[in-house]
Design a protein around this nucleic acid. Structure first.
Length: 540
RNA sequence: GCCCAGGUGCCAGAGUGGUCUAAUGGGACGGAUUGCAAAUCCGUUAUUCGUCGGUUCGAAUCCGACCCUGGGCUCCA
């Protein structure tokens, strides 16, 4: 059975049918770089990565537009933008509290620098928005690579796969100009200080993605509309394409005045510029054609459905297509639900806010974090818990042990091939990851003495999850101990462990237990492992 | 108020009309092992699927109403 995926646009499960099944174009809305990405951001990106990896897996079958199955080989060009334009934080109070997000990040960095919280090797000018953006972008890419985001690994040698908004301002201006010339956008205000809006009523299908109607979208119901801006729009739903504002921290010249682009236009430009064939961006902008859709797949978090993706559809369809419609931009819309933490909404004020780097610093293994973030079906709110992370670590360890035990060469057993088929069937069913994981667990538990062929078959499934291929943080070992990642060896610990070793040798178990308790009081758990060493880890 | 996605056992999370007294992982409990632990292995652990009503020979699964959670209604993955 070919891959069936939920399409937000049709609100139904449907076969994923790319224009060319051998080469899929996929755009994911990426992070803003005013701060470190948190684990909720990464869940969204990793879900997209899971889909991308499954599409490229030999186990994946797709449906072609003629209805025939397509089994591969297949490549996916996956692009993710990095938003480095300083958008505004908040204008709920009519704009008075709105601050430039990049300026806020700069203030935060300046404070961190002052209080010595920045690593010594970091020397950036907190007043330079480009430096701030570059700083956080590089940290994001590092975290993404650590978590096995294939796109981030590829982007090391092909940076155009992760385009920056600030590098596409010319394209944005060109698209805005084209939208104005076709009657889909208009500029207001005195010459040289104009604001440009997309005119939503000019695109009848607006609302198709989020299933909103213009009437249903009560202007300002979410409390985030700037009343002053509302009055100059032709329609309350019209949205910003260009804002002239010479006081903005990041600004560019444009036909409408010096200022900055709207939030939605960057994805329209970067998806088309990165995924259309070379030269097509300019050609289609000059003379739109009737091609059915620009790209195959578009993903993002559920909060992007409205307004961001709704607006992208309107802009892209109107800029590049002669008969703009709700499905002339992306063929399939893929949205992941949000991540909860310990049953609650993740929020800095609740103290349950984690970045990937926070967790790595605590000694959490990237493989365990990746599994915890992808193990729940993408259309359910996932609940991130420390217990869940521990569960995942154990699952990863068990898989590794099983693979390590596959030393006798031989072909894959029928049981292995059956497990593989069941794994693939689960993934074809709207990426039923939880069932797929259950099949993988059944795989290892049903075959107690795996052959190399069994192990290869298992790896064939697992390469879609891409958990076991992640680098394993090396334990720091001394003559007496192996320290788990996140634990810093010290002379004190070494000395206690030596005393314990001597006490045990003398069968003074009372003393050895006291030492174990003393280490526990310092938050350290120990266990005796093979080779006479002691493994020291953080107490969970 | 409107639009979307959900609500399953101690936890996480599959299952969308009979094979479900509910997969899988974890937890807990018991056993093996261990000086004791840890790890590992073996076994046990829910007549129950948000609530109420309905359809059906049969419902976790379909229908209706209601309750709750998360997202959106122009910052957000």
């Amino acid at each position: 059975m070919p891959l069936s995926l939920y399409n937000t646009l049709t609100r139904s499960l449907q076969p994923f049918t790319p224009a060319d099944p051998a080469h899929i174009t996929f755009y994911s809305c990426g992070p803003t770089v005013y701060d470190d990405a948190h684990i909720g951001n990464f869940r969204s990106f990793l879900i997209a990565d899971l889909l991308r990896r499954f599409l490229e897996s030999p186990l994946c079958t797709l449906t072609t537009s003629s209805g025939a199955p397509h089994t591969g080989p297949r490549t996916v060009t996956h692009v993710m933008n990095i938003t480095d334009v300083g958008h505004m934080t908040d204008d709920a109070e009519g704009g008075e509290n709105g601050q430039d997000r990049m300026a806020v990040a700069g203030q935060r960095l300046a404070e961190a620098k002052k209080s010595g919280k920045l690593p010594a090797d970091v020397s950036i000018d907190p007043r330079d928005p480009y430096a701030i953006a570059a700083y956080y972008a590089s940290r994001f890419q590092g975290d993404a690579r650590t978590l096995g985001l294939k796109l981030a690994l590829e982007a090391q040698s092909k940076p155009t796969l992760m385009p920056r908004a600030t590098q596409h301002i010319d394209g944005m201006i060109a698209v805005i100009a084209a939208l104005i010339s076709r009657g889909h956008a208009y500029a207001v205000g005195p010459a040289g200080q104009q604001t440009v809006y997309f005119h939503v009523p000019s695109f009848a299908p607006y609302g198709a993605l989020s299933n909103n109607t213009l009437d249903g979208l009560r202007a300002g119901e979410g409390g985030r509309v700037n009343a002053a801006n509302q009055s100059e729009k032709k329609h309350p739903a019209d949205f910003l394409l260009w804002k002239s504002d010479p006081s903005h921290i990041m600004k560019w010249p444009s036909p409408w005045g010096e200022g900055y682009p709207g939030w939605h236009i960057e994805c329209t430009v970067m998806s088309a510029a990165s995924l259309l064939a070379p030269g097509e961006f300019a050609r289609r902008l000059a003379s739109p054609d009737t091609s059915p859709a620009l790209i195959d797949l578009h993903s993002g978090g559920e909060d992007n459905i409205f307004p961001h993706h709704e607006c992208e559809i309107a802009q892209s369809a109107c800029a590049f297509c002669t008969t703009p419609s709700h499905n002339t931009f992306a063929r399939h819309w893929f949205h992941g639900r949000h991540l909860m933490v310990e049953g609650q909404k993740m929020a800095k004020s609740k103290g349950n806010f984690f970045t990937a780097r926070d967790l790595f610093a605590k000694g959490i293994e990237p493989a365990a974090l990746r599994l915890e973030l992808i193990r729940t079906h993408y259309r359910s709110n996932a609940n991130f818990t420390m217990q869940g992370l521990a569960d995942c670590q154990r699952m990863v360890d068990r898989w590794r042990r099983w693979l390590d035990s596959a030393t006798t060469s031989g072909p894959a057993s029928p049981a292995a091939l059956e497990s593989q088929a069941r794994f693939a069937a689960a993934m074809h069913d709207d990426l039923n990851i939880a069932l797929a994981l259950a099949e993988l667990n059944g795989f290892t538990s049903s075959i107690s003495n795996p052959t190399t062929g069994d192990a290869e078959t298992f790896r064939g499934c697992e390469s879609t999850l891409a958990i076991l291929s992640l680098p394993r943080p090396a334990a720091q070992t001394t003559s007496i101990a192996a320290y788990a990642p996140g634990v810093t060896p010290s002379d004190e610990i070494e000395s206690l462990l030596a005393q314990r070793r001597d006490a045990r040798a003398a069968k003074d178990f009372k003393k050895s237990d006291e030492i174990r308790d003393a280490l526990a009081a310092r938050g350290l758990a120990i266990k005796d492992i093979a080779g006479g060493k002691v493994e020291v880890s953080r107490k969970s």
